[in-house]
Amino acid sequence: MSKSLRLTEKWMQRGLWLVALVFASFLIGLGGTLVGDLPKVEKQLTLDDFMDRAASTALRSSIKTTEAAERDADAALEQAQLKRRVTQADSAAARETFNNWLSTRHATQLSGQDPELVARTRALDGLKDKERAAGMAVEAQQQAALDARQSSVRERRKLAEMEQAAQKLLNAEYRRIELRVFLYRLALTLPLLVAAGWLFAKKRKSTWWPFVWGFILFALFAFFVELVPYLPSYGGYVRYIVGIVVTVLVGRQAILALNRYLEKQKLVEQLPDAQRREELSYDTALTRLSKGVCPGCERPVDLKNPEIDFCPHCGIGLFDHCRACNTRKGAFAKFCHACGATGQRAHLPAQA
């Protein structure tokens, strides 16, 4: 069709296509903003929404308490271990002193030192008792720290089990939310797609076609970009099933359209030549001729052959002769290219 347009008309057509694209871009921006806000209609859920609030609160509080007890027990254990090391050092030093003194006593054999021996032995026993008490204190703190750790582990395990069960419920709810959001998108997109189909069928060649095509581009973008990527998967079954259904529907419509077209062409090819050319628009005829096909049946025809004046497939006239100058010209031309006379079809000469 572009070959039959005037230069100014071509540029105006391009400008109108630019209007269509700009109009579609603003519609796409508005639609994208609306679709992006759709998930906000659903409540943002957390694990706590699927757990016994009282039980989870009690467990978390218990975990904090046991963690604090564990820290206190560890600190007390460090202090007890330090005291034990001190008592062990004192006991070792006293034992070394006692052994040295005992060696001196054996060397001097002084019986008058027997009371001092008893006193030193008692002091050494007292230090040994302190060492044993410090060891018992360390063991007690070790037991307290172990009890605190085990209690904390038990509480954490209980909380983890609750969170694991809640996570399963949360994941299931997220899948339901995903499906609902997809249905929201579908509820917005499907009417747009239906409206775009109606506009394409009825209004794509109207005066306001830039806005029609802009809306069609917007509807296609909304369907393939704003809807299809968010199609719930469920292991791929939904996507494949939807793909099969859409393919079957589109394929069925394409097959029916092809059959209707072929039936229509058969009926059209049975009409008189003049009626068939009257039903063909000027631009449509020129477009098909520029592609080297018959304007009536769209089959290939050698238009450069000067001996072909009628389509060998459907019989429609392709060339005739000017009534004014008898020059061979296109049957669909509005004016004769040789003399400029009105291109009303004339009967071919008898010799033709």
Rank of each mutant, 00 (worst) to 15 (best):
T66C: 06
T66I: 03
E70M: 13
D72S: 12
A75V: 11
E78S: 14
Q79A: 15
L82P: 02
R84Y: 05
R85T: 13
V86N: 04
Q88R: 12
A89S: 13
D90W: 08
S91T: 09
A92K: 09
A92N: 06
A92Q: 07
A93W: 05
E96L: 10
T97C: 02
N99C: 04
N100V: 07
T104M: 09
Q109L: 11
E116Y: 10
E116K: 09
L117E: 06
V118K: 08
R122G: 05
D129R: 15
K130Y: 01
K130T: 03
E131I: 02
A133G: 07
A134F: 03
V138A: 15
E139M: 07
E139Y: 04
A140V: 05
A140E: 14
A140C: 05
A140L: 10
R149T: 04
S151G: 13
S152V: 02
V153C: 04
R154N: 14
R156S: 06
R156D: 00
A166W: 03
N171T: 13
A172G: 01
R175Q: 15
R176G: 04
I177M: 04
I177N: 01
I177Y: 02
E178S: 10
V181H: 00
L183C: 08
L188I: 09
T189M: 11
L190P: 00
L193R: 06
A195W: 07
A195C: 09
A196H: 00
G197K: 06
G197H: 01
L199D: 07
F200H: 10
